[in-house]
Design a protein around this nucleic acid. Structure first.
Length: 291
DNA sequence: AATTATGTTGCGGT
DNA sequence: AACCGCAACATAAT
């Protein structure tokens, strides 16, 4: 479910909640959701939480007890389509009557796949309805191998327009599919691809290598802008699927211009937003504003 | 009741 | 290489 802004939001909040707390227990309620030996996490603690592409990277401190040091350095979590990470502190129940967050007090739910319990009795719940996501305990080499599959993050400050142009010069697939290809750039999913193409005024079906440099530049800036704005608002929530670590919704859904807006008026010109299927994914755009 | 949709990615085939 | 379609799985909506 989440794209870069949602994962970034979760990561930023988790840093302050889980770092420095020894793990006292871990429950794996669905085997497929956990890769590696969960018991080897017990006694360890996270020293840092970062994000790469749509993956959250929990950096582990080495176990002081050498006999229990297995060289496992990182716990990676990919939320895929429906993953959630919900942090519940025993003392401070969250929600407080808020309609989108009360369910947090009733975890684990039937979609909870993994529970990490910390020394202070707080719990991190990994919920994942469709079970595409994973929690993966691994060593440094595997981390590198995993991340090497991705192109640079769209919000990487060192990423430049020249890279994007070079990577797409031989690609004839529709530009929307191209910017959603993680090997080209990482972090842009179905929502933000539609939104950025609208902002840039580029039709989603244009062959990637048919964009003029100016169009490519507009699109590049639009992607960064849309992603940045969504991070500021805590991501996009609808149908309650994506939520923050406290169970609350994000705010970018209120600023969506085309995604999910089919048959509504284009905020720009008033004509009706169209919806097509592109590469198997719902795609929203304005025929008049995007060419 | 069957079909279709869903915010992701990986695979196997052309 | 690039591209395409489908697969993993669960549920809600038409």
């Amino acid at each position: 479910m989440p794209e870069l802004p949602e994962v970034e939001t979760i990561k930023n909040r988790l840093v302050n909640l889980v770092v420095g707390k020894p793990i006292v227990n871990i429950q794996v309620l669905r085997d497929k959701s956990f890769r590696g030996d969960p018991d080897k996490l017990i006694g360890l603690q996270f020293i840092k939480v970062t994000r790469r592409a749509k993956i959250i990277n929990f950096h582990l401190a080495q176990n002081i007890d050498q006999s229990k040091n297995f060289g496992l350095s990182n716990l990676l979590i990919h939320l895929k389509m429906t993953g959630q990470l919900i942090y519940v502190d025993e003392n401070t129940k969250v929600g407080g009557g808020h309609p989108t967050a009360d369910w947090v007090n009733d975890l684990p739910s039937k979609h909870t796949r993994v529970i990490i319990q910390f020394v202070d009795k707080s719990n991190l719940f990994f919920n994942d309805m469709r079970v595409f996501g994973w929690v993966w305990l691994m060593d440094k080499d595997l981390v590198e191998q995993e991340f090497s599959k991705y192109g640079p993050d769209i919000n990487d400050p060192s990423l430049g327009l020249a890279y994007l142009i070079a990577s797409l010069k031989n690609r004839r697939i529709p530009i929307k599919q191209a910017i959603m290809d993680n090997k080209v750039i990482a972090g842009v999913g179905n929502i933000y691809a539609s939104e950025a193409l609208f902002v840039a005024g580029v039709h989603p079906q244009r062959p990637a290598n048919s964009l003029r440099e100016e169009e490519m530049s507009k699109l590049f800036i639009a992607m960064q802008k849309v992603i940045d704005r969504s991070i500021k608002l805590g991501g996009t929530t609808f149908d309650g699927k994506y939520v923050g670590v406290d169970g609350f919704a994000g705010g970018f859904q209120n600023e969506l211009q085309v995604y999910g807006q089919n048959n509504k008026q284009c905020p720009n010109c008033g004509s009706l937003i169209k919806r097509i299927k592109l590469g198997g994914r719902g795609t929203f755009f304005c025929e008049r504003c995007q060419s």
